[in-house]
Amino acid sequence: MNPSLAVIFLTLFSGSGFGLMAIVALVNDFHIDGGLSPLRTVVAVVLALILVTIGMVSSTAHLANPKNAWRAFTRWRTSWLAREGVFAVLFYPVAITYLGWVFFTNKDQDSVALVLGNASAVLALVTIFCQGMIYACLRTIRQWHTPLVPANFYVLGLALGATLLASIRLMLAGPDRTLIGIALSFLLAAAIMKAIYYFWIGRPSGTTLQTATGLSRGKVRLLDQGHTFGTFLTREFSNSITPIAAVRFKVVVYVVGFMIPAGLLALGLYEPLGILAILAPLSAFIGIGVERYLFFVEAQHVVNLYHGRAPASMPMMHPNLRANPTAEQPPRRLVPSYQKR
């Protein structure tokens, strides 16, 4: 799939914002490390709102016809994309009311604040679920059509949120042991979930060019795509990377996305990090941004089969199972048929 920045930013930033909101509610509910002070709650909720807004704004950037975007809330009965929009929009008034209440009353432990905070957190978590289902419900893209996708969105969003909050705590030198413990557990859980996902998508899928065309009497191969240059379909769906490059990117995801933030947070337990603590969420955002890039670029739509691009680019697949290893890197400029000899 085309790894456009708009969708990468949408899922990355709004996911982390919603994750942060959920962690804030959790911390205040259970007085983790003494809970957050009202001022810190306000800062964290503002940060969450900013992150969610970055995500939402960048999502409208990939619309070809944004003037109709308001209609996107109408089909919530069937469409996960509409549901995501509805819940994201419901999230704002509740979260802003929560923010206002804490800011003006300077209380974040009274029952009103707790109810509002938890309501925002629930809406945030539901939105992450819808976001994951947008991808997981597509039967056309095997790498997405799995319950692992919403599960991954959850742990990654919560890991980002927890890392953010823990690093803020570190910078302000507040009590932070349990908070760091939570962040470390989410980072670990995210790393494990991602590993399960990466092994899962490495398996070959059942659909081939033979079943796609129904021509089962012999080997089927593409003679001609029927068009001289790219089409909407090739631009939107034919992105892929070589298995080697995919492995390298995965190393980046694990080192930059999980290990460096976890290492920094663990270090923060023993040494005062001060402003350096900001490096933990920064590194996590970069690494998980790369993870999001991989999530899109590794996804192979079934229509690629009709273009003769069988699961060659699937990472971690045994070379003998790859249909056509030379198709991994399609030539950038196709030769028009009238120039072919």
Binding site: A64, A72, L138, R139, T140, V302
Partner: peptide, 15 residues
């Protein structure tokens, strides 16, 4: 009504 989000084209297996 279409807002050009491409989502339906992702859902179509036949391009």
């Amino acid at each position: 009504k279409c807002m050009g989000c491409n989502y339906c084209s992702w859902a179509c297996p036949y391009g």
